[in-house]
Design a protein around this nucleic acid. Structure first.
Lengths: 224, 224
DNA sequence: GTCTATAGGGAGATAGAC
DNA sequence: GTCTATCTCCCTATAGAC
């Protein structure tokens, strides 16, 4: 699923930012966000009340309104930070060219998948993924994040990767748009299943194996 | 996506059934169900109140409790009927053998996709699909329906189809489980996108084209 | 099988003291 | 930036008349 392929990914401890892009430093404000992420990811946005959140944080309802104007602004702030985080999964354009010329397609795809799974396995990020999936059908912003920032952005990134590989003669010629779809859509579905299985703490061994088998199958079909 | 491949699918006007499998005949009870389906599909289960439903139906809140013991029972009844409907997408075992021997794999897959899309395009069913996707992360029953009745059942059905084709020498030998995953997972993801786009009434032309391109690509890879 | 009336509680949000 | 107190409204569900 495409990622900083250049090296081991250092742990990113970027602070949360608010809707004005200012870093969030107040411990209670951070605690409110992470508590909200935890609760929303289990019961959905409308299934969680301000009371639930503040009770867990250990403050009164009214105190929350010193940090966020409304429940919607709280969710919006969570989504804003998720967007930024997802963008950082893919390697920056300026490094891409040299990576594609040297690393084998197979290794590139496998390492991309590994990095992507690392993003999803982050304890906080996993919950936000769940919220995005969960709110997709109710919240236009969540829908936009999924369709554009995730599906759209990754597909177009992968299309450019395949196009470059074809130009370099590293894989068999084909429509790079179709290749991107064939490679990526199964992973989207499998990630959905993966996230879902983890809700109940069920085993994800089968689906993780499925992802690796998909990469192998796909690589065998595109290589000369 | 596999379906009654035998012929044009007659319009199924099977009545809804209640949790005791008894047909639902009361017009108001049917109206409650379809109103609930409509509202749940847009705002989610916990985003819709009994008041919203009964106001739309034109009865008082208390009257609803003559038909359903609780809001949960109402949702459970909707899901029960959905389960039955999904099972009927796939052709019965006894017809399968003769279909697989005569119909070309390409035609089988294309007609299966057409029939599946017909199921999703039914105005009521489309909304229930949306509810299932929407409630997956919150409701264990919705999760079970998606993972088992949809993903699991269709994958294992397709696995048996590919295994049979391989035994008949109609496609190249390969692991039928991997083939089923490679064929089906992209469609699951694309159907998710399709349903999502329709929430806002956006164009689904691209994703429908993507589905057809996937079938073509896949067929070209498995045929001798 | 519908209605009126109401119980009993939870929701989001605000005012104003400290 | 926290608190207490409160407003106003909505929630699911039930009792009992017709």
């Amino acid at each position: 699923m495409s990622a900083r392929q250049d090296q081991e990914q250092e742990q990113e401890l970027e602070p949360y930012i608010d809707l004005n892009e200012a870093p969030i430093t107040s411990p209670n404000k951070i605690k409110i966000m992470e508590t909200a992420i935890d609760l929303f990811s289990h019961r959905g946005f409308s299934g969680v009340s301000i009371r639930d959140i503040t009770k867990e944080v250990g403050i009164k309802e009214s105190s929350l309104y010193n940090h966020f104007r409304s429940k919607d602004e709280l969710l919006g702030t969570i989504f804003l930070n998720f967007r930024r985080s997802v963008t950082r999964i893919m390697p920056p354009k300026e490094h891409l060219e040299s990576i594609l010329g040297t690393m084998s397609p197979e290794l590139f795809l496998k390492q991309g998948l590994t990095n992507f799974m690392k993003h999803i396995d982050d304890p906080v990020m996993e919950k936000v993924w769940r919220i995005v999936y969960l709110e997709q059908y109710r919240d236009p912003l969540a829908r936009d994040i999924y369709l554009n920032d995730i599906v759209g952005a990754i597909l177009s990134f992968m299309e450019s990767v395949f196009a470059r590989w074809i130009a370099l003669g590293r894989i068999k010629p084909a429509d790079p748009r179709v290749l991107a779809a064939e490679y990526q859509y199964p992973l989207f579905a499998m990630v959905g299943v993966y996230v879902l299985l983890r809700v109940d703490g069920q085993s994800t061994w089968d689906i993780e194996t499925g992802m690796r088998e998909h990469v192998d199958f796909f690589v065998s079909k595109i290589m000369e």
